[in-house]
Design a binder for these strands. Structure first.
Lengths: 219, 219
DNA sequence: ACTTGGTTACTGACCTGTAAGCAAGTGTGG
DNA sequence: CCACACTTGCTTACAGGTCAGTAACCAAGT
């Protein structure tokens, strides 16, 4: 699954010892778990180190600081998250929205990752949070992707209102995030996949008006 | 030891009870500010105490523990938040949605309170968080209010699908919350009031189908 | 011999909660 | 209307704990 990327004839000389890279990934995965279940400030390096059988100083040996570990963890998650996409790149147009619904469905099976991002993204709005820039940039990028997809869906001769497209793009991400929080608090009470699909379709319908009708997305 | 600041003069001290209640409220407001800007775990009693000119032990004298302070703060916010409603009670039917849009507009003017709730609600999904039960109950109640309002809006002879109403109720809260996070991270990029109104109307339209049309809500 | 991946041990911040004390204000009996 | 015990609203001091980060060291593998 992952082994493929060790390819390329240029063996990178002495630098990366394979075992070390694996160790670092273990730590990053442990960090996801700990920061997800306890929050950033509250999650300790010792707890992360414990999960991979070393001391907290060992973790710092690899990552230098807790802040750096968080940032590398977010980066790692981004890299591995697109791995499952065959073409390694997020689709556009209507397919983007289908992709988002699929993601919601997938997320309903992995509360751990969902919690990590739900907790950290809200955490990041606090003063001087090390991941604030990461999340700001992330949302900017995602909103832009969705705006573009919305324009693609629309008839170019009858372009939608810009302000509305902006609102719709933000709203799509917002429902997904907000539903995750409610679902994490009370999984019985919220059907994450269905509610996400419903809301995304609702926003989509409202944004593109009458041009495209009913059942654009499947559930 | 301490030269008391009992600097006499016209030292009015008639009603210690009332004065005490005011002191407690000062502390609760300071707690909102600190927990909002730093998160729960990260915000210290010392910082809260500082804002009202006392030591952290003074705060504990009034509230017993940090957890208790958080809970009372949430309670205080709930009490004071409905004060501005003339009839002191949340409306039903279409008025509920108008009220939500109004709230979003109001929120765009008070980032402090918005941040407090955005941060704490996501914080609360972490393990053993003292406010988890508070937020779970809060969402349960709000979803129920919205479900009811949705039913009121619909023609009783043609009732909407239950699963859809559930999804719509959760989605309405979710967009509002999610938009707040994006807005806090990047106020320039997100129009909180407009996007909230747009998304709420979109969900409403999708949920009640053709029975009610266009411009149910004003912006 | 040098680098790498750790370890132990320690430091210095901070943080919550507790205890004891104190000054100013309150209530009551006389 | 006053004396005096009690209560209230804090304070300082400290106990006990957690945590990030640093330094010095060591055991391999190359």
């Amino acid at each position: 699954m992952i082994s493929a990327m060790a390819t390329s004839g240029t063996q990178r000389a002495k630098k990366p010892r394979e075992e070390t890279a694996r160790r670092r990934e273990d730590i990053l995965r442990a960090a996801m778990s700990t920061f997800g279940t306890r929050g950033y400030k509250n999650g300790s390096l010792a707890e992360i180190a414990d999960q991979v059988g070393m001391t907290h100083a060992g973790v710092l040996h690899h990552f230098g600081s807790k802040d750096q570990l968080l940032l590398e963890m977010l980066d790692y998650r981004d890299r591995t998250d697109v791995e499952h996409l065959a073409d390694q790149h997020i689709p556009g147009g209507l397919d983007l929205f289908r992709h988002l619904v699929t993601t919601a469905r997938r997320n309903a099976e992995r509360p751990g990752i969902v919690q990590t991002f739900a907790v950290l993204s809200a955490d990041s709005v606090t003063d001087d949070h090390p991941a604030k820039e990461y999340f700001r940039g992330r949302y900017t990028q995602l909103r832009s992707d969705i705006r573009e997809a919305l324009h693609e869906v629309c008839d170019p001769d009858d372009p939608p209102d810009d302000a509305m497209v902006d609102a719709a793009a933000a709203a799509v991400l917002a429902v997904m995030d907000g539903l995750q929080v409610q679902w994490l608090l009370d999984p019985e009470a919220v059907d994450l996949a269905y509610a996400s699909a419903f809301a995304i379709e609702a926003v989509l319908t409202a944004a593109v008006g009458g041009r495209r009708r009913r059942r654009m997305l499947e559930y």
